[in-house]
Design a protein around this nucleic acid. Structure first.
Lengths: 181, 181
DNA sequence: CGCTGGTTTCACAAATTTATGAAGTTAAGG
DNA sequence: CCTTAACTTCATAAATTTGTGAAACCAGCG
């Protein structure tokens, strides 16, 4: 059956602002789902495939950052096939990993540790590709042409950016572990 | 975000080939165009609309970073309509500006100063949007829930990233002017 | 072995995105 | 004013991307 295992609503009073307290199962529909969809939309806008974005967002909003195919399928009202495809992509780009719960034939898809970290590293890759293409183009155009100048500067910028980005990530690690972990 | 993670060493591949000197008109076809298309493909892969990417790449590879609609249309073998749309988009996101040469009815589209700078700032915008959506979601989910925890951390990461990114850009400015300008 | 729950693959339908020709605008130049 | 070069808008055709149902797979379990 499809009863959402592991999604026991946690009750929390004393919540911030105007949270009256109770968390009902309907909360998913009224509160979580809108967020998931909005976030997915943002990601899509930013270039990620739609379904992958939805799955990713859904995991992000789930209690323990992990859901089974069936759960995703239900929450997103999407076919298992669609989930399968999205999940394959996300695993490919290292945003999630798939885990086989021993004793059960269902699989759990869970957010990679430090997802955002990974995501930024990924961005780093596309920067690298752009940089390489420009570097090659520089060879074709000749570094002495006006266009070549511009390209050269761009290449420099990208290299600079990549170095800096790496350091930013290092700094984040420091920042992070410095406060609670 | 779209591509995978992992840390590809930022290797500079093959040095630019020998530049024999002459530049013929056919050079555009044989040398420039392939670069333009490849670069556009990279940008498309990274999420930019195809035609916009082509126009942008074309401008980047042009001698003075500026071309008329007709020139773009010819070099890209695309209809004026397509160019028009692409150009509108690029202006929208502040990557190019349009200039009306007084006395001529044609318009010139030129790369914005410090394009890459702008581009990164733009990326910053999408980061901001994601951050905001997450922040809102945090309100809905409650910061005391497991998902809320995760979200909160993500928001922090994004804020950190944005601050750092700003500084990186400042540093680039310094770096840049420190060497020649 | 042979089911059976669970996931993946495949062919195809639906939705979206792109690009185009043609008609519509706008303003320079007579 | 009227012409006309140049850009834009619009409806539509073409290409791509998405998502789905149904069939194929693949272990575990009895």
């Amino acid at each position: 059956m499809t009863e959402a295992a592991g999604h026991t609503p946690h009750h929390h009073e004393g919540a911030p602002a105007e949270d009256t307290g109770e968390r009902t199962p309907q909360d998913y529909e009224t509160r979580v789902s809108p967020f998931v969809e909005q976030f997915a939309a943002d990601l899509t806008e930013a270039g990620m495939q739609r379904m992958a974005a939805r799955v990713f967002a859904c995991l992000l909003a789930s209690d323990d950052g992990a859901l089974t195919s069936a759960e995703l399928s239900e929450r997103l009202r999407a076919s298992p096939a669609a989930v399968s495809g999205a999940v394959r992509y996300l695993a490919q780009v290292n945003l999630i990993s798939r885990r086989r719960d021993p004793g059960s034939r269902r699989e759990r898809y869970l957010l990679h540790q430090e997802v955002w970290f990974t995501a930024v590293a990924g961005r780093d890759n596309v920067l690298g590709r752009l940089r390489n293409t420009m570097h090659t183009g520089l060879g074709e155009l000749g570094p002495d042409t006006p266009a070549g100048q511009r390209l050269g500067e761009a290449v420099e910028f990208f290299e600079f950016l990549q170095r800096e980005l790496d350091q930013v990530l290092v700094r984040w690690r420091a920042h992070r572990s410095g406060r609670s972990r």
